[in-house]
């Protein structure tokens, strides 16, 4: 039978949310260390969105900072971790030492992009290890690639192959906040599983739910 994200029930999504929650906890701990400040992460929300919701015209042009990682192993697919450009300042404060940040700098300064790649790596790694623990099957991540560009231009890369059999994606929205300043940093974690990964993912959730 053709598998689709549409088949996921609210109970399935609760399981995903729980996995994401564990992942967020790990990610917050790791980020606190690298950023040398307390980072809290709120309980993430999980939603299934259509491509047209994901790439809606209103914010298609919004500049985002994105880390892209390719997933392989038990759950092959594409992962995008995106931050609002305007909020990345806060995330990078320990590196910037008071200097303001702009998009050009993020693009040309390899130190900044590798730093953002590492943030993406930590967050993705935390979620994926939570998922691997839960499923007992390992997934692996490619090194991150960082890109600053329009949201739609970035995300459409991940849906090219997916769009041949699926028209929906899973989005995990996480809100990071600085424990001292209470500044919030929104991040969206978009998971685009390949067809083979999608089947095993849904079977896994059904197994745990049954």
């Amino acid at each position: 039978m053709q598998r689709s994200l549409r088949q996921l029930t609210p109970e399935h999504l609760d399981i995903v949310k729980e996995i994401a929650n564990i992942g967020s906890g790990h990610a917050a701990t790791s980020l606190s260390k690298i950023l040398e400040q307390r980072i809290d992460m709120a309980v993430p929300s999980v939603e299934i969105a259509s491509f047209s919701d994901l790439l809606n015209m209103d914010d298609a042009e919004t500049p985002v900072v994105a880390a892209y990682l390719k997933m392989s192993g038990a759950l092959p697919g594409h992962l995008f971790i995106m931050f609002d450009l305007g909020e990345v300042d806060d995330l990078m404060k320990p590196m910037l030492r008071g200097n303001p940040l702009n998009a050009e700098e993020l693009l040309v300064n390899p130190l900044y992009s590798s730093f953002l790649g590492e943030i993406g790596n930590i967050m993705a790694g935390a979620y994926i290890s939570a998922l691997s623990d839960f499923s007992g099957r390992n997934s692996y991540l490619s090194p991150p690639q960082v890109c600053v560009d329009m949201k739609s231009a970035v995300l459409s890369e991940g849906i090219l192959d997916l769009s041949l059999y699926e028209d929906q994606v899973m989005v995990i929205n996480a809100v990071l906040s600085n424990g001292e300043t209470h500044q919030t940093i929104h991040s969206a974690f978009t998971l685009l599983p390949e067809l083979s990964g999608l089947s095993s993912f849904i079977e896994l959730l059904e197994g745990k739910n049954g």
Binding site: A60, E61, M150, S152, A153, S156, E157
Partner: peptide, 16 residues
């Protein structure tokens, strides 16, 4: 398709 008085717009083209 568009006639005079109408513009056509695509936002956020990447590899498209």
């Amino acid at each position: 398709v568009a006639r005079q008085g109408q513009n056509l717009r695509s936002s956020g083209l990447g590899s498209c």
